[in-house]
Design a protein around this nucleic acid. Structure first.
Lengths: 126, 126
DNA sequence: CCGCATCCGTTTTGATACTG
DNA sequence: CAGTATCAAAACGGATGCGG
């Protein structure tokens, strides 16, 4: 996933699945979620932990690093006695907003439906 | 990822990040790509392998199984002497098309830009 | 206290070979 | 053709410890 820059695996070179490229940026285990929460404003490290308690510090650090590496988020370090690091979307990162928001909308719409589908079945009436 | 049905990790229950839900469906390592290629028609197992050579049979099987389990694709098995299995989007799966297509469009738009950013740097005038 | 790196056990992914 | 089995590698989760 990190070696994206050294050739895409999925499709013949020169082509390269656009979807693969996009998923490499937002498809990481938590990246989409982190980006989603960055849409409505700057966040600190521990804020993410509060919002998404099941992310480990380790993964949070790694995912944020990768997002930073990809140029979609900015990492502002305040050299203070109580350390403070703020993460925000870059210009480039904002171009992902439509996708993230659409994913949010789809999730909202189909989470309930999916549950009823999964648990009750689509055409499972008697 | 598979135990999605038994509680979301990211957010407090009752809430549940919609984005997380969506990414659970399309965010798997190859799921988005597979779905993307299913948009323009039914595909057979080996067709996927040709389109995305770097997917191993193992992962292809696993990812397709999960997509099937999530109800977004349909697996049609033809009981023939040369086995034949066709994968296609379900009704539910088609609801993901807008997202996939938007990811495709974003990828197309920014793949080149990202490359120039990554390889040449933002302010590196030729 | 906040952010992050390291060690270790568990889970996921990859590579290869084999089967109906 | 469409998978399955097996083993090795990498990613991930949890706990701990360090620097500021």
């Amino acid at each position: 996933m990190r070696d994206r820059k050294s050739g895409y695996g999925g499709c013949p070179e020169g082509e390269g699945c656009p979807v693969e490229f996009t998923l490499d940026v937002i498809g990481g285990k938590w990246k989409g979620v982190l980006l989603y929460h960055l849409i409505d404003g700057t966040k600190r490290f521990n804020e993410f932990r509060k919002i998404c308690p099941s992310i480990t510090q380790r993964m949070l650090t790694l995912q944020l690093r990768e997002l930073e590496e990809d140029g979609v988020i900015h990492r502002e370090v305040y050299q203070q006695v109580p350390p403070k690091v703020e993460y925000s979307l870059t210009e480039f990162g904002r171009t992902l907003e439509p996708i993230i928001l659409q994913m949010k909308q789809w999730g909202e719409t189909y989470k309930k439906k999916a549950r009823s589908l999964i648990f009750n079945g689509p055409g499972q009436s008697s």
